[in-house]
C-alpha cells in the first residue's frame, strides 16, 4: 500500500512527510508509523525523542503558513498526530494500552477480577489511610507506618514496570504462536499497574494533605 505525494507525485510508503519534496502528506497513520518506527514495543526513548523533535520541526505549521490550504491542513493534522503519537508511545503504560487497542483487545474485557493479594493490599492500605485521616496530625507513628508503606508500594510498582518491559521483549521476539498468552499477560500487568497507581495516588494525597502533615 503506497501513497502518492499530492505536491510532487512521488509514490512512497505512507508517512508524515514526503521523502522527496518534504511536504506534509495527508494521511492517517498509527502511532508507530507516524514516528517512522517499526511496530515494536521496545523503544529507545532518547531516539524516540530525537525523532519527534526532528519530524516536529519539518512538519511545523509555521513552515507552511503561505502554502495552499491543502498543504496547511496536512501540516496541522500531521503535527497533531505526531504529538499524540509521541505522547502515546513515550510512556510504557500508555504504549501497552495502545498496543492492546491495535491488536483489537480490550483491557476490561473478561478482566474484572482484582488479584486477591493486590485486593488485600488495597483494602489494608486504604484502611490505614482512613485511620490516618481520623487521627490527623497527632499520630506520628501511624504516619511513619504509612510512609513506609508508600516506599513498599513504590517498589512493587517498579517490579510491575519491569514485568511490563519483559512482556514487551517477549512480544518483539514472538512469532505470533503465543499471542493469546502475551495478550493475557499484558492485560494482567496493565491492570495491576492501574490498581497500584490509584492506590499510590490516594496514599500521596493523604500524606500531602495539610490535615496529616
Amino acid at each position: 500500500m503506497t501513497l502518492q505525494c499530492p505536491s510532487c507525485g512521488r509514490e512512497q510508503e505512507p508517512q508524515l512527510i514526503c521523502q522527496q519534496c518534504g511536504m506534509p502528506l495527508p494521511v492517517e497513520l498509527d502511532c508507530f508509523a507516524a514516528l517512522g518506527l517499526p511496530r515494536k514495543l521496545t523503544i529507545d526513548l532518547p531516539a524516540l525523542e530525537e525523532r519527534y523533535h526532528d519530524l516536529g520541526k519539518r512538519i511545523h505549521p509555521d513552515r507552511f503558513a503561505s502554502s495552499p490550504p491543502r498543504v496547511r491542513s496536512a501540516s496541522l493534522s500531521g503535527a497533531a498526530l505526531l504529538t499524540r503519537s509521541y505522547r502515546t508511545l513515550r510512556d510504557p503504560v500508555s504504549r501497552g494500552l495502545y498496543w492492546l487497542e491495535l491488536n483489537g483487545e480490550k483491557l476490561a474485557e473478561n478482566n474484572k477480577q482484582v488479584p486477591a493479594e493486590l485486593a488485600e493490599t488495597v483494602f489494608e492500605v486504604q484502611e490505614q489511610l482512613a485511620e490516618l485521616r481520623e487521627a490527623g496530625a497527632g499520630d506520628g507513628a501511624l504516619r511513619r507506618e504509612v510512609e513506609k508503606r508508600r516506599v513498599e508500594l513504590g517498589l512493587a510498582m517498579d517490579e510491575l514496570r519491569e514485568g511490563l518491559a519483559r512482556n514487551f521483549i517477549r512480544w518483539d521476539r514472538s512469532d505470533g504462536s503465543d499471542r493469546a498468552e502475551l495478550v493475557a499477560e499484558l492485560k494482567s500487568i496493565l491492570s495491576k499497574i492501574a490498581y497500584m497507581r490509584t492506590l499510590i495516588r490516594d496514599v500521596d494525597r493523604e500524606l500531602d494533605s495539610p490535615r496529616t502533615a
Binding site: 483491557l107 477480577q113 482484582v114 485486593a119 488495597v122 483494602f123 491492570s191 497500584m196 497507581r197 490509584t198
Partner: peptide
C-alpha cells in the same frame, strides 16, 4: 464480591 475497573484502577468490594 471484589471487582475492579482496570481502565481507571477503581476497586469495589
Amino acid at each position: 464480591g471484589v471487582v475492579g475497573a482496570p481502565e481507571c484502577g477503581d476497586v469495589m468490594k
